[in-house]
Design a protein around this nucleic acid. Sequence first.
DNA 1: TGTATTGATATACACTGTATAGGAAATGCC
DNA 2: GGCATTTCCTATACAGTGTATATCAATACA
Lengths: 109, 109
Amino acid sequence: MPKGDALGGFEQLVLLALAHLGDNAYGVTIRQEIAARTGRDVNIGAVYATLDRLETKGLTRSRTGEPTALRGGRSKRYFELTAEGARALEESVRALESMTRGLNWGELG
Amino acid sequence: MPKGDALGGFEQLVLLALAHLGDNAYGVTIRQEIAARTGRDVNIGAVYATLDRLETKGLTRSRTGEPTALRGGRSKRYFELTAEGARALEESVRALESMTRGLNWGELG
DNA sequence: TGTATTGATATACACTGTATAGGAAATGCC
DNA sequence: GGCATTTCCTATACAGTGTATATCAATACA
């Protein structure tokens, strides 16, 4: 584990998606949320792999839901932030904000 | 190379430091800038390794400066954003912003 | 019964992040 | 001059993260 256990970029995105989705966060919706907001075409396997790692670190937890009465409605695995995950997310977003503060995009490059 | 060649989290930090430092960006000041703004104690080797990778991708360029008349004043290697680097940085910051927009920190965890 | 659909899991590998160790060039002091 | 000291850069190795590919499971409907 790194010293300050900073979040990776994609981990941060996944946590942010969880924060937006509330109690409707599972693999497919998480992927959609990220794609919709960032325009980035995320691979579903990457999402699950990252979710597993976040859970191992104690930043998220998951539970298995009921199967829905939809065709192919397999039971979903719902994910949510833990208190520690919310704290880590907030901290890493603040760090980013303090790095972007006062930047003049016009005079770059 | 990844499909959408998205920036990693630390790469983003380093690019942001370059953007702030302008024509005074070299290993030591970059490290200081990140540490001062994020409170994160960055390893200098990590900075150089990341700068090399960014240069390989064409997001930064570097030139060797004159030695200064200071004790131990070895000639510095100055870094700056390329146009492509500035574009990539702006894009990745915007992606982050659109992920944090409308988030209610109070009701998380 | 079999095929399309929704959703999850496994695995492998490339890319990033980080620590450790060491090298190069300049100064200052004896 | 010679050697320690200072500033800064380079090399390398390995853990951690990011991503793709492939596959499995359960359900509905024809």
